[in-house]
Write a protein that binds this DNA or RNA. Structure first.
Lengths: 219, 219
DNA sequence: GACGCTACTGGACCAGCGGTCCAGTTGTCC
DNA sequence: GGACAACTGGACCGCTGGTCCAGTAGCGTC
């Protein structure tokens, strides 16, 4: 993506320096105590430069995340099975979950930083109630959602994908990752996904697995 | 809990006013654009009072959440089945998920506000790497975890509970809730939990549902 | 190699935040 | 009704994400 015609040499250099500095800081401190000023200083650059290149805290984190997720995304889109196209949806999903956990665990603080940025970033006039998700999340969600839909068309694939991916943003889970338990998470996520895809839904155990569970209000 | 001997009349009045004002603001605005100063003003109270009563933004949100979750928690601990003790773990879990979704959907912005507070609150000297979860989360997690463990002792119940509860903190899911899709979420969560508990794990479909899925690194 | 155009740079600056402080007030107990 | 402490509230602080713009330096042109 960089030096894509028209990017000056010094600009490219500084961009890399900023990204690198952010990475280092993220590795050493909790994301919420890293200020943009610190990032700028660590990169040997003025604050204005950081904002000029990345627009906002959110932009910075997004750019970093995008870079980190790039190889995984490429593997999904055009790599060999089971991650890439060609394998059965079930196998692809399990492989992909593995891949995601891997990326996330290698970038422990980054997801948390993204979450933090999302709630911190100043909203100017865009009073839109909606708000946009990050492209990476969108990509991941679409992929998971499609795989679930292929394997189990009767499920609410869209929502299930959100639920599964949601686990990665959860603070307790992130803490676990911080302690090197990524294999454990990977196993749990795969078990969960496998259960969902293999569940005896539709015919067996009638009245047990698909019973309605909505009751009245509680609070 | 209030006026529990020793709380002054005006203090109690103001405490309720603050809680109420927070609720109203939360209902009308996104949580990240509600400042403590606004809360104080809306409650007709000085900023110092708010901090004196609740300690921090986090404390305020926690107190509000605690109040909202109270009836559910009581129902779980001493209410009638299927929510309360006595029913089978599976039924209790499904009922509880329903209950949680209900509470969360009734307090749309509150969970988000809690998450926001968690990343925003100034950390003084407590440089502890750990960090404490909220008591409500802890309670919910323990309950879900125990139910899963009872129904399926071989699973990583602790982590599974985190994953399931993590869904409630996910922004896309929260957005869905905002649009009144709480029934959909409830169904999805129940389907997922049911799949997990009913999964043919251990003997059937050998080599399919519990196959190892950890591969090498990707990034 | 000089030149000018322009994108890039960086630090002073701003509004607003969460949180603190403490002098003054007001409820409560004896 | 007096004394004491708990409560109150607004001025204040340090710091943040983000803006601004004068100055700088890379790049294409001749």
């Amino acid at each position: 993506m960089p030096q894509g015609r028209g990017e000056r040499a010094d600009a490219a250099r500084n961009r890399r320096a900023i990204l690198l500095a952010t990475e280092e800081l993220l590795a050493r401190h909790r994301p919420e105590q890293i200020s943009m000023e610190q990032v700028a200083a660590a990169a040997g650059v003025g604050k204005g430069t950081v904002f000029h290149r990345f627009g906002s805290r959110m932009g910075l984190m997004l750019a970093l995340m995008q870079e980190r997720a790039l190889t995984l995304n490429e593997a999904v889109v055009s790599g060999p099975p089971p991650l890439g196209p060609g394998a059965a949806p079930r196998a692809r999903l399990l492989a992909f979950l593995d891949g995601i956990v891997d990326v996330v665990s290698r970038n422990k603080g980054l997801l948390a930083a993204l979450g933090h940025a999302a709630t911190t970033t100043h909203r100017r006039e865009n009073d839109q109630g909606e708000g946009g998700e990050s492209p990476i999340y969108r990509f991941w969600h679409r992929h998971v959602s499609e795989l679930i839909a292929q394997a189990r068309p009767e499920l609410d694939a869209d929502l299930m994908a959100h639920v599964v991916l949601g686990a990665l943003h959860s603070t307790p889970v992130l803490n676990l990752l911080e302690q090197g338990e990524s294999k454990r998470l990977s196993n749990a996520l795969c078990t969960l996904a496998a259960s969902l895809l293999d569940a005896p839904d539709g015919t067996p155990r009638p009245g047990l697995s698909s019973r309605r569970c909505n009751s009245g209000g509680v609070n």
